[in-house]
């Protein structure tokens, strides 16, 4: 069972400290949403948890082992990351994009084995992309591209899935479907899922736990109902936002403008 942990994590780009002293432990079966205003350090946190950015101090461990001690290949077999970038320079088909998720498991000459093909087909089906398998990525919609990179990460068949704003280009129905699917992977499949989300309502609907990042620190960490209250939301995101509690749900809406 996976446990991803940031201990006293501090990250800086040159003189600018982006993440300060973050303590965070996420376990298998959890669906965690990371929220915060622009520039709060959310993307940096994900990059660090994925091991692609080295911390200035502190460490990220997976099941107690420091990520920096593992090879890229070993990390890629445990942690998949859905990137923000969804555009390529070349006319790959969606299936070829999803197949990139198998890179860490390729044989010496890069040929796909039957279990690779099965994983690719499964990931395409999960993201509703089977009919578009052979469509070129530069000829599908932004939403379809975004689902393709999610499918690419799913094809990695890891037990940890990190997503950096995976719903930006999706329509409301596919936003819900994509997040419902990755939530299922956590809750039923026992995966560890952590997603950076801009939309607080989506975050509240998706996550079993919300981590609020503000100025590089963890400001709040807990179930959506406990974390998303009026003062916190206005404190972090600024005035003009209202938090409405209805039945078991939390809704964050803008003030009436007129």
């Amino acid at each position: 069972m996976a446990e991803l942990r940031a201990r006293a994590l501090t990250v800086a780009y040159g003189p600018r400290t982006v993440i300060r002293d973050v303590e965070l432990t996420v376990r298998a079966g959890e669906a965690v949403a990371v929220v915060g205003p622009n520039g709060a350090g959310k993307t940096t946190l994900v990059r660090c948890l994925a091991g692609v950015v080295a911390p200035r101090s502190g460490a990220v461990t997976l099941d107690g082992r420091d990520l920096s001690a593992l090879s890229r290949n070993a990390v890629a077999r445990r942690i998949a990351v859905v990137p923000q970038v969804t555009e390529t320079m070349f006319p790959f088909t969606l299936r070829e994009i999803v197949a990139l998720g198998r890179t860490a498991r390729l044989g010496r000459f890069g040929t796909a084995r039957p279990d690779d093909d099965a994983a690719i087909e499964r990931a395409l089906a999960q993201m509703d992309l089977l009919p578009l398998s052979h469509a070129r990525i530069d000829r599908v919609s932004g939403g379809e591209r975004q689902r393709a990179v999610v499918a690419m990460a799913l094809a990695q068949e890891t037990d940890v899935l990190l997503l950096d704003e995976p719903t930006t280009h999706l329509d409301p129905s596919h936003q819900r479907a994509t997040l419902a699917h990755v939530r299922d992977l956590a809750v039923r499949g026992g995966m560890l899922v952590l997603a950076v989300l801009h939309d607080l309502n989506l975050a509240a609907a998706f996550a079993s736990r919300i981590v609020v990042i503000h100025r590089g620190r963890v400001l709040k960490d807990g179930p959506p109902r406990d974390v998303l209250d009026g003062p916190t939301v206005r404190d972090v995101f600024g005035p003009g936002l209202e938090v409405i509690r209805h039945a078991e749900r939390v809704l964050v809406v803008p003030d009436r403008l007129v």
């Binding site: 990059r47 994925a50 091991g51 692609v52 090879s71 890229r72 290949n73 990390v75 890629a76 077999r77 942690i79 998949a80 990351v81 990137p83 970038v85 969804t86 390529t88 320079m89 070349f90 790959f92 070829e96 994009i97 990139l100 998720g101 890179t103 860490a104 498991r105 390729l106 010496r108 000459f109 890069g110 990179v149 690419m152 990695q156």
Partner: peptide
């Protein structure tokens, strides 16, 4: 020939190549 499959992992940039398992 040996590296060709890993070249495609750079399709979304160095960082995604890394998360896909390519150093």
């Amino acid at each position: 020939f040996v590296l060709a499959p890993r070249v495609d992992a750079f399709a979304f940039g160095d960082e995604t190549a890394a998360t896909l398992g390519v150093d």
